[in-house]
């Protein structure tokens, strides 16, 4: 083990120490937002794998998160709960009696989503061109229609309610850290190089003997798996899911995160997730009525979105490629930064 690995392990330990401390001392509200940050980090990192690293413009997250959420929700609800909930059409019996604990439910949610990713990617990646964006966009809409109409499975528009709240800060961040490790290890290997090669020039990648079809599939299926798990975590955190919950806005929010963080940069994604999720919470201040020098300013709803948009525009003006560009944070660059400063002081 070299020095850098020790530092990385140490910072992960520090992160969990912070969460452990926060769990006891920070407000439940703050912890809740940190839980969301964990889930969104996992979603954004996997989205960045297909969009930023592999360069395949895709709009899949809302559809995939929905699948993961539904599968997990169906598996963690008890048969009695399901019977009470399906008031219009009874649930398919074998699904109604299916019940398991949280972890296997999340894994199955992820695997089912990954399989759907496989089925979607298979025809799309065999042809060249920007079909992926269109197909995944359509898929997101299809999922909504399907979940509205397969009443014996999804309970239609009524949705699934009263899910047990298994999701804790540990589940969220455990998965987030796991996803980051898996994805970053993939990126820093021959597979990651091949993904970046596909992004930079697909013809040249083929000429290098890279089976670009399977490289794209690998990225897409990995992203799908983690998005499915993220959906399951989200479902148990919110405790209620319905077809209207997973709209294109979810995809859009993730797109903002990966663009702000830097397409292809996982550490940038982590930073941007914190900035975007916490940012929109902290900016609630600007919507509250305030008194400045006796001047009463009533709260203006929607103001934080305006301020937030302005901040995003500023980021894109001053850091066109996002906070981190395509670079990753590394200990070396940190050491170099300090060294430079020391030299400057002398």
């Amino acid at each position: 083990m070299n020095k850098k690995t020790i530092l990385t392990v140490l910072s992960v330990v520090l992160l969990f120490l912070f969460l452990w401390y926060g769990d006891g001392h920070l407000s439940t509200y703050a912890m809740r937002i940190w839980e969301e940050v964990g889930i969104f980090l996992m979603l954004a990192a996997s989205y960045n794998l297909i969009n930023g690293v592999t360069g395949q413009f895709s709009l899949e997250p809302n559809g995939f998160v929905a699948i993961g959420a539904y599968v997990t929700a169906i598996l963690i609800l008890t048969p009695a709960q399901k019977e009470a909930m399906f008031i219009i059409t009874p649930m398919v019996p074998w699904l109604q009696n299916l019940h398991m604990s949280f972890f296997p439910a999340l894994i199955i949610g992820g695997l089912v989503t990954a399989f759907v990713g496989f089925l979607l990617g298979f025809p799309v990646f065999r042809v060249r061109g920007d079909y992926l964006a269109i197909v995944t966009l359509g898929f997101g809409l299809t999922i909504r229609v399907v979940s509205n109409n397969t009443v014996p499975i999804t309970n239609g528009a009524l949705g699934l309610k009263g899910l047990p709240t298994y999701t804790t800060i540990w589940w969220c961040w455990g998965w987030a850290v796991f996803a980051m490790i898996v994805i970053m290890r993939m990126v820093n290997s021959e597979f990651g190089r091949a993904m970046k090669a596909v992004r930079d020039d697909e013809d040249a990648a083929i000429a290098m003997g890279i089976n670009t079809f399977w490289i794209k599939m690998t990225a897409f299926i990995t992203a799908a798996f983690f998005e499915g798990v993220g959906g399951g975590l989200l479902a148990s955190l919110i405790t209620i899911i319905s077809p209207t919950m997973f709209t294109f806005f979810l995809t859009f929010e993730l797109l903002i995160i990966i663009v702000v963080g830097g397409l292809g940069s996982m550490t940038g994604t982590a930073l941007a997730t914190i900035v975007v999720i916490w940012g929109s919470e902290i900016l609630r201040v600007v919507e509250q009525p305030m008194d400045i020098f006796g001047l009463h300013i009533p709260g203006i709803p929607g103001m934080r979105m305006v301020v937030f948009s302005v901040l995003l525009i500023l980021i894109m003006i001053f850091a066109r490629e996002g906070i981190m560009g395509q670079k990753e944070f590394s200990w070396d660059s940190l050491f170099n930064f300090f060294k430079k400063n020391k030299v400057a002081q002398k």
């Binding site: 190089r193 930079d200 020039d201 040249a204």
Partner: peptide
């Protein structure tokens, strides 16, 4: 036209 992977 040279086609390197320009970001690598």
């Amino acid at each position: 036209n040279i086609r390197l992977f320009s970001n690598l």
